[in-house]
Design a binder for these strands. Sequence first.
DNA 1: TTATGACCAGATAAACAAAATTAGTCATTT
DNA 2: AAATGACTAATTTTGTTTATCTGGTCATAA
Lengths: 251, 251
Amino acid sequence: MASPRRSARNQTEERSKREERADRILDAAGELMLRWGYNKTTIDDIARYAGVAKGTIYLHWKTREDLFTALMKREYIRLSEDLKQRLASDPEGGTLRGITKHSMLATLKNPLMKAVILRDTDLLGEWLRKEQEDSVTFSQQVAQSFALFELFRSRGVVRDDIDVRKQVYMLDSITLGFLVMEPYMPGDFKYSDEEIAEMTAEVVERTFAPSPSSDAQSDERTKQEISNTLISYIDDVLTLRKKQNQEEVSQ
Amino acid sequence: MASPRRSARNQTEERSKREERADRILDAAGELMLRWGYNKTTIDDIARYAGVAKGTIYLHWKTREDLFTALMKREYIRLSEDLKQRLASDPEGGTLRGITKHSMLATLKNPLMKAVILRDTDLLGEWLRKEQEDSVTFSQQVAQSFALFELFRSRGVVRDDIDVRKQVYMLDSITLGFLVMEPYMPGDFKYSDEEIAEMTAEVVERTFAPSPSSDAQSDERTKQEISNTLISYIDDVLTLRKKQNQEEVSQ
DNA sequence: TTATGACCAGATAAACAAAATTAGTCATTT
DNA sequence: AAATGACTAATTTTGTTTATCTGGTCATAA
């Protein structure tokens, strides 16, 4: 197109302003969604809460559904970044225990992602039904678990005397159990996110640690390698996701 | 009361007939409840399915709710008897592993009890809301877990380097996770009840087994003692429950 | 005495219309 | 060019009426 263009400087200035506003709108959407759930959170509410006019929202997303999908994508990215941070700053970030603990913490600290994982219909309402068709997220996640387990097994960090599929099933059952437990327990039986993550990690470690007979116990080298592999994997996912977001914004 | 009485013989004959019919009605109720859920299962349906007139049902229970409560009590008794049987007939019935496995199996094989434990609103509908007020079942269950864990710890079958409350929380999280996992996994990822119970038992055993350093590994004697304790506990519960039922029938 | 099913009152669902809300648009303002 | 909010078409909610269903009773039959 031969249309007149603004200076690069000007363009990026506006871009960041746009992005900032988009973020504010998503903040509002997230806040209100947690309070009222998807079904009861209207575009008007969001606009008022974010301090913009309704029309402005439609300068960013084509439909209401798109807005919430964008919100969820952002939350996914945030969760991933949070996890990456936690893993990177913990010397045990390359251990099965550390990975479990930090995955749980990252999930527990992000109520929207937690709701997605638990398929919380109260909160996600119609969005879940519409979205889950084209979202391969869970299969993806399972595939991810597989790859990680294969790596662990090849390094002798995890016992290899059980079917990998079963190991994945077990791992997911354990984490799901701890994620879902809260409302089932009587009121005088609450634990903090940190305690829950710690307990989960304890269970996972003891379940999957190799029998003491096996040789390769986790030395520093292996830890580092695993940590690096996982972190760079998360990085890949992050850059991919972010690029996808870019493309969407420019339609 | 000085009313004229039938012969004892006649009385017991009638009693057993009554009971048999009550059972048939409960069978029908259970069957239909599993198919349509509590809300959509009507007394007419049940009467038709059980081959009795509607009025007959009210010769047994005062209200619809009472009928379903009776059904659940029967299922609880059945589950307990099933569990007792499984424990008694397995030489490993006195092990943490065996107990976990058989508890899971007994639960998995009883869809109504499973629904109660998981608070399945789709299936139990209004009954759950009304009933859960006066049902202390879960607190009871938790208390039960406690007692069992204390026994295990005192016998050195379970590690005692973690807070007991946390151990109970962990155990319940693990079992809950495996009970609830099914619908979360992709379709090509199903396991049989037996495999699920086995996996659960594996996790629980590895999580709670004492560190190898500790002395008292489970000898035959301990196993037997624990098995006996548990079975006689179940027996106590059973006789208590059955007596309660008797009293209710005779109002 | 025991079992039945017609019967009834109250609850639930279906049908419908009216009112209110809301997603998305676009002429107007900034 | 960018942002707004009044506006509209469509959906959702609310209120109302009518019809159906269902839990529970009880006079009658077995």
